[in-house]
Amino acid sequence: MTIDTQTLSRTLADKAGARLEMWLSICSRCGMCAEGCHYYASNPRPEHVPAFRVKPLVDLYKKRGQVDATVLETLRDVCYGTCTMCQRCTMYCPHGIGIAALVHAARGVAVAMGLTPPGLAKGLENALEFGNNLGVTEDDFLETVEWQLEELQEEMPFARAPMDKEGAEFLLTFHPRDIKFYPQNLFNYLKLYNAAGIDFTMSSKAWDSTNLGLFAGDVAKASRLAANVADTAERLKVKALITAE
């Protein structure tokens, strides 16, 4: 792999915000963050100490981007492979270092260098094309909602599942997995919201509560995905958005 050094140094400069610079320079690798990490809890290896995830980024900045491909591949493997960005480590860090934010920045470097892991890149493509990361079409979504609503109405005749209704109080969003593989979960959601008697709506276009752009570290795509849902919420004039999980 050849490295586009210009893109790399531009990305590094873009990401070097106040906090990133500070956090990279004060992480003392004391290892106390390990106590908060579920990777470390299940397998206490040095690579599973959250502070370890900061190393490739420190390395990159110290060498001002003058690195070979193995450094970037290590960065990708460490930052995508050993972190879910849950931020528990920050609660255990005596310095209060936002390790997840650093991992996010490192992933952003990987994205800029074309190193997004293939599975994640595919989901992200789906999300941008279909509005959800599993590539569920609008017809399939509407059909699944209709099907689950019919089932629900057998035990709850008054149940409703409003679609694209303006002025409702809440806009519901779901994990695409629930729609595609576990429609029973959609059934349960609808049952819950109907039983609670809240004024809600769904959107036929923007119902994915996940943001793989954010997870991948791709800020531009993350913004587009977030805007998709946020703009819909504004157009439908809802008061609040309910996200899954």
């Binding site: 956090w23 320079s25 004060i26």
Partner: peptide, 16 residues
């Protein structure tokens, strides 16, 4: 890393 002498306070403030 000893710069945490000053930056500890900044980092804790930001995270807090």
């Amino acid at each position: 890393k000893l710069s945490h002498m000053a930056l500890f306070f900044v980092s804790r403030a930001a995270t807090g």
